[in-house]
Amino acid sequence: MYHKTIPYRIFNVCNTILLLLIAICCVLPVWHVLAVSFSAKAAADGNLVSLWPVGFTTVAYEKTLNNPVFLGSIWVSLQRTVIGTVLTLVLACLAAYPLSKETYAFRGRNIYAWLFVFTMIFNGGLVPFYVVIQKLHLVDSFWVLVLPGAVNVWLTILLLNFFRGVPKELEEAALIDGAGHFKTLFKIYLPVSLPALATLGLFSIVFHWNSWFDGLLYLNDKTDYPLATFLQTVIVQRDMSSMSFNPKELELLSQTTVRASQIFLGALPVIIIYPFLQKYFVKGLVLGSVKE
């Protein structure tokens, strides 16, 4: 067995250490944001916080958790993420299955595939898109967050490539048993594609959680914003020179620590969901279902 050999053990130790070091590098910025969020305002504005809170306080979190707009935006984001992801996954499964067939089984597939890919590359820009959104009466509607991005071509292509890896014997057996394509998709393909579906789900969740531009442009009321849009309006620096604020207002605007707490809390749900989905990335799932 290879993993008992000495060179492999040495490699394994070095490898683990290396990856852990890289992982630490990736945590530091998040850790920094966390440290800022627990610091006193003056220290944060003076750029004095690095990796440990200066003048520890939880004031920022009290403010954030008492901010109804922030909490409301999390709820909007949750709705958008759940509905959007389900819709995206359903559409992607339905489209990826036929597209994963070879041309001899499905003659139109190449035309469809290019029709899909074409939309990934070309777009008409903001103006005509806005007109369409407006004509469909989606402006200021929750559905503007979900419907336009419902078909995610990138994920569909990813899934069709995963589907190609499904053992052909399984499909043939099912077809011989008289199952139709819909049944084959739902009963054979989907159960053995759990790692792929988990991946797709994760990508879709993250996509929806992080999208902000649609909310900003198509929704009127800040209380309808998803979290990412809300955060975007908070973190982007503004050119104060073009505005007429008094210093007291500027002070309210420069809440570095509150912003940090919002960024952290805002990312928390999608960060937590990842370890949860990881259990579907376990080796042998495919084989396990083959044996069933």
Binding site: F122, V127, F129, A150
Partner: peptide, 20 residues
């Protein structure tokens, strides 16, 4: 199976593409 996705693409991608 492809039709629903195609419908979305026509409405939200191909129609706006005319704006090119």
């Amino acid at each position: 199976m492809i039709f629903p996705s195609l419908l979305f693409l026509i409405v939200f991608s191909y129609v706006p593409m005319l704006g090119i």
